[in-house]
Design a protein around this nucleic acid. Sequence first.
DNA 1: TGCGTTATGTACTAATTGGTTAATTATGGG
DNA 2: CCCATAATTAACCAATTAGTACATAACGCA
Lengths: 231, 231
Amino acid sequence: MKDATEVTKSKEAKPAVRDPEGVRRDILTVAMEEFSQNGLSGARIDEIAARTKTSKRMIYYYFGDKEGLYQRVLEEAYGKVRGGEHDLELDGLDPIAALDKLCRFTFDHHRANPDFIRMVMVENIHHGRHMQMSKTIRDLNQPAIEELEKVLRRGQAGGLFREGLTPLELHWQISALSFFNVSNSATFSLIFGGDLFTDEGQRRLSRHAADMVLRYVLRPDHLGSIPTGNS
Amino acid sequence: MKDATEVTKSKEAKPAVRDPEGVRRDILTVAMEEFSQNGLSGARIDEIAARTKTSKRMIYYYFGDKEGLYQRVLEEAYGKVRGGEHDLELDGLDPIAALDKLCRFTFDHHRANPDFIRMVMVENIHHGRHMQMSKTIRDLNQPAIEELEKVLRRGQAGGLFREGLTPLELHWQISALSFFNVSNSATFSLIFGGDLFTDEGQRRLSRHAADMVLRYVLRPDHLGSIPTGNS
DNA sequence: TGCGTTATGTACTAATTGGTTAATTATGGG
DNA sequence: CCCATAATTAACCAATTAGTACATAACGCA
């Protein structure tokens, strides 16, 4: 059972006896789990080291100190969930369908990446102190706004969407619904029961979140065009 | 400057030389700041003790251990923000105005209590592990749902609101918008700039959040009745 | 006024934990 | 084949930090 996960047999790329990049990735992967699970101060370097194929010394060799590792993990987290929006090819869809698709994608994508969500939660607890420098992260989120802006413009040009809407605020709203769903599921379900977090409940929430955004955006005379959600 | 905050002069209730309840409250207050600022594992008992008028020994005397203190602080946080909804006297308003008021209240209330928000964030990082027992917390949130349910029923009875809406889901949506606004302000403003978090930006968000909920709830033929928001 | 109980101050400890020192081995270029 | 450099190992350390032992002082009640 233990040998099943060994990479010994792979001779395709790495010599196995020394594999710096593999070690780096190994550390990052384990560290992401540890940090997202326990926070910055809750995470234990020894624990990370133990669950790695390598040793504690290597962590410091590659990442300097705990904060350095945390920062790289944070960047990694943002990087892992980037893009996606662009692959949706929203341009091919009518604005309503496009916005609907974008909302559902965002909702589901957040849901599929709880580790990322937790890293962002942790970082917010720290007032975003470790993000101030990394320009990388800033750049990664720009596409989301741009896609949204294009859809919005098209919808407004076609007389479907209301005027006076801004992409940033809309992104904020979509993010709020999608993020909260994951970030607060523990306390929310403890207080109100877990009905909203079953598969069926989540499907409903996803549909209704998109529904909410569309009803917010659409001109009243086009409310009839809202997708049913059973697609 | 230091004497200004002393309670020495008050002879109304407590003897000042020994004041168990005051000491308890002092500890809880400081601990709330420390925990909400640094999380459970990031918080330092010594730091809490130092910023208290009393000593570390007292913390253990009254709260047993770190987790015990954290748990009491968490309960305290929920208790401090409870109620409120009931004082809004929504029954006296028409359903649309009532829902609008409830949304804005929730939004502003969250915004006014960042320490509470942060405690909930921290607790979610810990998967709500420390909340499982305290029935108190569960009870505190029931009123919010009940108020919402009453408004919803009235709106539906009057043919203003759509059918098929549930109070719980609506509460989830309102909470999501209100909570995210505070919880993620650090990372969000670092990525997208602080425009949404100026006084003016927050007024707009509050208005638009309520707007969003109303547009979601209202039957299309009543969308004209949405409050302007300049009340 | 005496006395059990509650509250508090001082000093200490045991364990955890982030980080390091120094020696060793592989690697790849000349 | 040699050697500078990158990668890795193993043992070690100093500081932090949650938690305690013990003595003692105030309280309130009889």
